[in-house]
Write a protein that binds this DNA or RNA. Structure first.
Lengths: 223, 223
DNA sequence: AAAATTTTTAACTTCCTAGTTCAATTAAAA
DNA sequence: TTTTAATTGAACTAGGAAGTTAAAAATTTT
């Protein structure tokens, strides 16, 4: 029933199979498309068009749209957490370590807007797909562990006040860093772009650091 | 070509026309549907089904899906800003006024998750529809004005340090209050629900107040 | 050499969904 | 009383988008 296939220039001449690369390519394109348009807004045909391969291969490897979305979410998380591993704070005094962590988180979120958008979209979906992913769960303990250690040292040194909760502190740092990226469109539409200029962003970051440090430090602390 | 209409129980018996009520009903349903599923995820047929009226009337009054979305966004904003007007801070000392404003904002966001979700969705769409709305722009100056006045008084009293930026302070308060609602699904999926228990939320709110106040107050301030 | 996997291509199906159309009827406004 | 606006309801259209199918060929693995 089907016509014989055309030679598209790859037959006879040498070409390598590379399943992993093809899947990575699909995931890369899918991530930006889902980040841009959301789960229901993204188009499989559009994703396929921006890929080096074809729509057929998307279904060959991922089965359906939702699975592709879930896998794209996972890969976005993995990529971002990879970047976070590079931060070494062990040698620093606790207040300085925390200051660096906050500044790093703020910048890191800024540099990964696609990831932030994926998380936004996942929140719109009540974290349905994130909840189901076994891959992602483990990646986030590291962030809390880092904070737990900083808090422990800060308390021991008397720099930080007692009773700080690592998870809550992570929440606070995340709030300031995440909101900056997630709500940029509405905030700047309503209140102008000043805070999103280069100077504005530097100020916001420095003040986020300031705010967190003032919060954790003891009243008579060094800062 | 069409059959004569059935008597659906409203003919002959008295029924009132009420264009405004019908539109409000549509907007109310549309808001929750868009908040729940997003612009592309929401279904006109589903909205119509949950309405007291019909799909036909949605198009009669709103023309198309995007217009309905834009109007729903506007009405959500209007409703929320209405609730904000009730807060009177004039008689309070500046630090107490600010403390109340932060606590109020935090609670207010918590109580209006549909509105928060609409803003999240609008951010996913790069604020396209919010930018076009002339209605919404004006409503947000009030929030800044309130803060400007509090800062002015706080500086005059020497309680606050000089150089505070009202828009930036609004950003900071919003970040803590907004993130709490917007990222609840992913955050609690990743780090547990402790912060979203009753006690956890009270702590987060009180600490948000604490954090903002420590930030604005002079080092040798009263607090 | 045989078997299994990867890749190609484009048409096709099937379902979903936004948006339309019809004629009629009632309510309100002029 | 005339005219305009509001309302009903269900069938219909037209397009979009997810997912499928076919057979074949090239590559890789066993």
């Amino acid at each position: 029933m089907n016509k014989p296939l055309k030679d598209s220039g790859k037959t006879k001449s040498g070409w390598k199979q590379n399943p992993e690369a093809v899947q990575q390519d699909i995931l890369r394109v899918a991530t930006t498309e889902f980040a841009e348009h959301g789960l229901s807004g993204a188009r499989i045909d559009e994703i396929a068009a921006k890929t080096k391969t074809s729509k057929r291969m998307i279904y060959y490897y991922f089965g359906d749209k939702e699975t592709l979305y879930a896998r794209a979410l996972e890969s976005a998380y993995a990529k971002v957490r990879e970047g976070e591993g590079k931060l070494d704070l062990a040698g620093l005094p606790p207040d300085e370590a925390l200051a660096r962590l906050v500044a790093f988180t703020f910048d890191h979120h800024r540099k990964n807007p696609d990831f932030i958008r994926m998380v936004m979209i996942e929140n719109v979906h009540h974290a349905d797909y994130l909840s189901q992913s076994k891959v992602i769960r483990g990646l986030n303990v590291a962030a809390i562990d880092k904070l737990t250690e900083i808090i422990r040292r800060g308390e021991a040194a008397g720099t930080f006040r007692p009773g700080l909760d690592p998870t809550e502190l992570h929440w606070q740092i995340s709030a300031l860093s995440f909101f900056n990226v997630s709500n940029k469109p509405t905030f700047s539409a309503l209140f102008g772009k000043a805070l999103y200029s280069r100077a504005g962003q530097t100020a916001l970051r420095d003040h986020a650091v300031e705010m967190i440090l003032r919060y954790v430090c003891d009243r008579e602390g060094t800062r």
